[in-house]
Design a binder for these strands. Sequence first.
DNA 1: ATAAATTAATTGATCATTTAATTATTTGCA
DNA 2: TGCAAATAATTAAATGATCAATTAATTTAT
Lengths: 224, 224
Amino acid sequence: MTVSGKRAKPPRRAGRPSGDEQDLRRHLLDAALGQFARTGIAATSLRAIATEAGVTPAMLHYYFGDKARLLHAVIDERLLPALAPLRAQLERAGNDPPALTEAFVRGISDVVAGHPWLPTLWVREVLCEGGALREVLFDRAVPGVPQLLAQRFAAAQAHGQLNPALDPRLLVVSLVGLTLFPAAGAPIWRRAFDAEALGPEAMLEHTLALLGQGVGTPKRGEPA
Amino acid sequence: MTVSGKRAKPPRRAGRPSGDEQDLRRHLLDAALGQFARTGIAATSLRAIATEAGVTPAMLHYYFGDKARLLHAVIDERLLPALAPLRAQLERAGNDPPALTEAFVRGISDVVAGHPWLPTLWVREVLCEGGALREVLFDRAVPGVPQLLAQRFAAAQAHGQLNPALDPRLLVVSLVGLTLFPAAGAPIWRRAFDAEALGPEAMLEHTLALLGQGVGTPKRGEPA
DNA sequence: ATAAATTAATTGATCATTTAATTATTTGCA
DNA sequence: TGCAAATAATTAAATGATCAATTAATTTAT
């Protein structure tokens, strides 16, 4: 492909830039985010990102090094900043479980309204074992919430109510999925919440009950 | 990797089996389903499936031809049969929208109770544009439901309530996600349904409202 | 002021690796 | 032996990653 004009920006010719070095970098970041959100991280090749951005694959290496660092740049400069308002809301909620749950449900609804690609990416990627985004979404996306849920999870597990093989951090996925899947607006859970049909405690209870049978995937033995 | 012993079945040496030719085929099918459900279809290599099954990749070619046909075998012999009870329930509901919706919500809850890997696979794969399972899940998994929703979608669209760029078939994903995400048991929507807090019509309305802002992913221009 | 040198940005081609897919060969049982 | 089952070895395509060469903006020297 030549330097023909399907790129968004005016054809940047080679040479030292006039001061907007970071502009193309942001463009590449957005192209990567779009491709990741649309077709999944594992399924997107650097070539696909480069083609969408109207550059050669080598540019991605020039700006980001390798695919892992490109992904981390997307995480640090797109995903986590998008979640920043939610984290602030969680911060204000402190350590009170009901307040934290309420902050999560309300906050994520608001965040997603401005970033409709977020839940699709979140839900899809955290559901892939060994996925590159998994740990980030577990530990850095909404700090505090997984730990809170893990405590309650442990308690429920002690009473033999839960599948022992279940990762408690997946509880957050359940909250995301139930709260705003797949897009935005006024999700049913949020509505029920607002209508006092369910309080924060009840929502946690329901989530735990939901996962009582485990987020099962067939194992080695005799699955189906 | 050699044929060392992390396999589930006893080491099958070469040679004619004692009559269980289809046994290994089913074993491979289950291994493929498990890997697909656990790490995603696009991210799983035939090597991973073969390793999990304790055979060489050539066996997959021997029994299924190529990856696409292996996937179709998984669909036809695992995914769609798992959904058969749900389809029967939809059949009985006829063409009445509320009855169809109720049958869908109740039926899929029951189906997933016996196949906990189903919603994870469904939700993750249908969320990948260009994913191999997308059309199957759209058109063959729950025939009739997407069409029903598409009609209501068109009506809502005519009133300017919905994002024109939205694929109406994604409404089913919303139903799946809201009904039983991520696993099984007594999902909150089902509970609300049983408690008469929400009728079938209200559920449809909520789903439409949910999707009002679109399942957006960033496009070429200036996304973030 | 103009030309040369410098430096950053970008390209096209290419490397090694991995993957899917195929072929050839061996194994064991009837 | 004959034949199906399974493996090992092979091929072709795609992917991530790298490289030398090219281009032009900026700086430096004259």
